[in-house]
C-alpha cells in the first residue's frame, strides 16, 4: 500500500540530497557523439543493405518478403539458364529496417549494413541502385541473421559496463582487436562506481 505519512519537508530535503550527490560524485553518462562512439551491436540492422552480386540468383524472395515493397528487381535469363538481376534497387527512404529480406534470402546474398549515418539532402539519393549496394567503404555487412559475420565483428559496448565491451572474456577466446573496439569509449566511466550504486 502507498504510505500516508505526514510530510514536513523531509521528502524535498531527501530529493535535494540525491541531486547534489549526483552533482558531486556521479560520472557523466552522455557520450560525446561525433568524437566518441559506442560500438554498435554485432547484429545491428543498420542503415544500408549490402548486396552480394555473386551470390544473388535473382530469385526475388527478398522483394516478396518486404512488407513495404521497397525492393525493386528486374531480372534477365543468362545464356546458361541462370538468372541475373539487371535492376536491384532499394528505397531506403521508405525502408523500416525490419530485416525480413535478409532473413528470407536463401543464398545469404543480402545483408543488413552496419553504418548508421546516412542522412542525405534529397530523397532521390535514398533510392540506391545495385552498383552502390555492394560492400564498399563503410558499407559493410552486419551479423544480423548471418552468424558467419557475427563472429568476426567487434563486441558491442554496453552502457551497463560503463560503455565497455560486452565480450565474455575466456582464456581461449580473447576479444578480437579491431579499430572499432579501440575506438574511444570515454574513460570517465567507472564501473566500480556503478557497482556501488546497485548493491543496496
Amino acid at each position: 500500500m502507498p504510505d500516508n505519512r505526514i510530510s514536513l519537508g523531509q521528502g524535498i530535503l531527501k530529493g535535494l540530497a540525491l541531486t547534489i550527490k549526483h552533482f558531486i560524485s556521479r560520472p557523466i553518462i552522455t557520450v560525446q557523439y561525433p568524437e566518441e562512439r559506442l560500438v554498435t551491436s554485432r547484429r545491428i540492422r543498420g542503415c544500408d543493405l549490402v548486396w552480394d552480386s555473386e551470390r544473388c540468383t535473382a530469385c526475388c524472395t527478398c522483394a516478396k518478403s518486404c512488407p513495404q515493397g521497397n525492393i525493386h528487381i528486374e531480372t534477365k535469363v543468362r545464356p546458361d539458364n541462370t538468372r541475373e538481376a539487371v535492376v536491384f534497387e532499394i528505397d531506403h527512404g521508405r525502408s523500416m529496417f525490419c530485416g525480413l529480406c535478409v532473413e528470407s534470402c536463401p543464398f545469404d546474398a543480402i545483408h543488413m549494413g552496419r553504418s548508421y549515418e546516412r542522412a542525405t539532402y534529397n530523397r532521390d539519393s535514398l533510392v540506391i541502385p545495385k552498383e552502390k549496394l555492394v560492400a564498399q567503404g563503410d558499407r559493410q555487412p552486419s551479423g544480423y541473421f548471418r552468424p558467419q559475420f557475427e563472429e568476426t565483428l567487434p563486441p558491442q559496448s554496453l552502457l551497463i559496463y560503463g560503455g565497455k565491451s560486452s565480450e565474455v572474456k575466456t582464456p581461449e577466446n580473447p576479444p578480437p582487436q579491431s579499430p572499432a573496439t579501440a575506438a574511444p569509449v570515454s574513460e570517465k566511466k567507472e564501473p566500480a562506481e556503478r557497482e556501488k550504486v546497485g548493491v543496496k
Binding site: 505519512r5 510530510s7 519537508g9 523531509q10 521528502g11 524535498i12 531527501k14 530529493g15 540530497a17 540525491l18 541531486t19 551497463i160 556503478r194 557497482e195 550504486v197 546497485g198 548493491v199 543496496k200
Partner: peptide, 18 residues
C-alpha cells in the same frame, strides 16, 4: 542486480516529495 538500487534512488527523489 543493479536495478533495485536505482529504483531506491527514484523513490528517494520522488516518493516522499511534498
Amino acid at each position: 542486480s543493479e536495478m533495485p538500487g536505482f529504483i531506491d534512488e527514484y523513490d528517494q527523489l520522488l516518493k516522499e516529495n511534498e
